[in-house]
Nucleic acid binder design. Structure first.
Lengths: 204, 204, 204, 204
DNA sequence: AATGAATGAGCTTTCATTCAT
DNA sequence: CATGAATGAAAGCTCATTCAT
């Protein structure tokens, strides 16, 4: 692990602004965006509510920056995986593993995303959320379809249902995952993949 | 089932009160409890905000009634399944099927539960949520452990991880499920069980 | 004078809303729009600040309604004068008299208009202010030009300067005029017209 | 006149302080004192809001310095006129001409004065505004009364009304006057005086 | 001289809730 | 049962001002 004075957060943005964003993300994740008051964020960051406005335009712009920063990083990882043009199973494994790594790095942002994305996607400012969801679907659904086509995945399953199944299964983990816990992201990914790919029942 | 003019909602309570609760549940599910204003509920129900207080003590008591009604029904179903003392696999199948039936009947309540339960469980008034979560865990985790013990389920999996996996897999469906859609709850249950038990990969 | 319980204001809008607008206009006129806090308006009206928002969307919408109501009435009067197609001198006299009547009826609104119109006219919501200013100029300037053309008014004066001179001379009166004072609007109009038309110097 | 790099403003105070005051005056005039934020002044001057406090005690003290500087100069001019003990008509002409010269030199300050003086005069710090208004009235009203007494001005006019008429006529010009425009201050004064003294109607 | 960061008071606005009618 | 009007607390945000560097 690199030498760092930060102990509380998963954000990487430097300076005061970055610290404040990390604090805000933590509080948003814990209580929900709407239920979070600016005062609570300020309390958690050790300054007064009004002082946050020296750094940010609004509560909403904090949320915006948290989510867009996270999505940028997420897509950097996903795009790298997709660009490798692996087979369907290997792609799925890589996407799942990458996802758990992102959860590990941006737990708060992921939790916020899960809770708020659906409501937010409609607002112009958060249009990139809707776009991200479309790319998301294309990536996962495409991988599954390729796998069905080449005999890697079962053909008797509704592929859209399977998509939702895999997608949700992975991301909901952000609601209980705690970085630094018993399992590394890679270990969790391995277990999840084992269940998703082979099932929990013993083979007969 | 009583004669009812209602066509839009999943609530069963009769009369105006029931209609209003159903409307409230729909709005809570769509926008989140905190972000929902009493005025919006009133608008959706066709009366003025203040008039809701003739029927209910508070916004919180609406939420309370929605969630407790749902949980009462859920546990009626779950308890019946558990009382049947089936084998682990059959119990799991029955619980999953029952869960999708509940999602079908109480979609809004389930969505609210998913979003808000964690924050709410701490408050005294909603203590039953925490209790329900404990019963929940006991039921599912117990079933999985029995299944591992008798060789029905794979022994090489982290059983707590598997519990979360199955739990999330089922309930997150409430976030996209629409009653009256292409699949019946039983059909969705069958597909989910197939994936959870046997995996999505083709057996080699 | 009609039977009326109102004693404080010049506004005619009925009901609570109208009373509140009249109070707001008075305070805006006395302290300036920006310097007026919503709390002060509420104090003057005898309710709490938040309660104003049951009647109005925002502080700005109060201002909007005050100004647009005034301008609607003003233009009703002006248009009637212009439609009569009197000679230039008679038109000028009628416009000045009508203006002092409006000042008498809408003193607060006129004072607000004087202070704030220039800044406001740029905002989309108050676009009608700019439009009104253009109509205003057309009415007054046209009358003066007609008068110069037919020999009623002196030809050796800069007509645009004369326009500003007459316009300002009339409207600034709102800053010191008090309804119910020593002079009726018609009397003030007569004196103003006497000075504007014939000057204050004794004829030699 | 001292060598100066300033080209945009009417203030004479030398150095950074003077530049800043000129900028502040411009912004105050354009948006009103209350509606002007210290940040806007700082933006316009090219430094940060806090940095202004190295030069000035407070926003109010900027306003104070702007207004008192202007009034000092104005009264230097007025007092010179009054000391000359001219006849009523010549005094009036000289006062009007001097006024337009002041508008030319201190346009922003005059505009601020017009907008804010009434509210400000009550505060102890700005007591000199009230005093100036009294001197003002004495000078103008006295001149008019002398003129009525010696037959220079018409005796059939309400002299207080005439005073307000002349006063407003002159000063409101600050709201539209732009230095460097088509008319010199002296030219505008001549036209105004022509209208005020002889009226706009053709003599019959 | 000027900056970056913060304070603290006060602002406009929102909202759950109350209550006479 | 419902409305119209209000309350009062708290929310998000603004802004003049301060101060260590």
């Amino acid at each position: 692990m690199p030498i760092s004075k930060k102990t509380t957060t998963d954000k990487q943005a430097p300076g005061r602004r970055g610290e404040l964003l990390a604090t805000a993300a933590e509080v948003f994740a814990a209580q929900g965006y709407t239920a979070t008051t600016v005062r609570r964020i300020a309390d958690a960051a050790g300054l007064l509510a009004g002082s946050l406005y020296y750094h940010f335009d609004s509560k909403e712009s904090m949320l915006d920056e948290i989510l867009s920063t996270f999505l940028d990083e997420l897509w950097a990882g996903y795009d790298a995986v997709l660009a490798a043009r692996l087979g369907p199973r290997e792609t799925l494994e890589a996407l799942v593993t990458e996802s758990f790594r992102e959860i590990d790095r941006h737990r708060a942002a992921v939790a916020i995303y899960q809770r708020e994305a659906k409501d937010l996607a409609g607002r112009p400012r958060f249009g990139y959320l809707a776009e991200s969801q479309r790319k998301f679907e294309r990536a996962w659904l495409g991988t599954l379809e390729r796998g069905v086509a080449d005999g890697t995945f079962r053909a008797d399953l509704d592929v859209r249902l399977a998509y939702r199944f895999v997608r949700d299964t992975v991301w909901v983990a952000a609601s209980w995952y705690r970085p630094g816990g018993a399992h590394s992201p890679e270990e969790i990914a391995r277990q999840y993949l084992s269940m998703v790919l082979d099932g929990i029942a013993v083979r007969t």
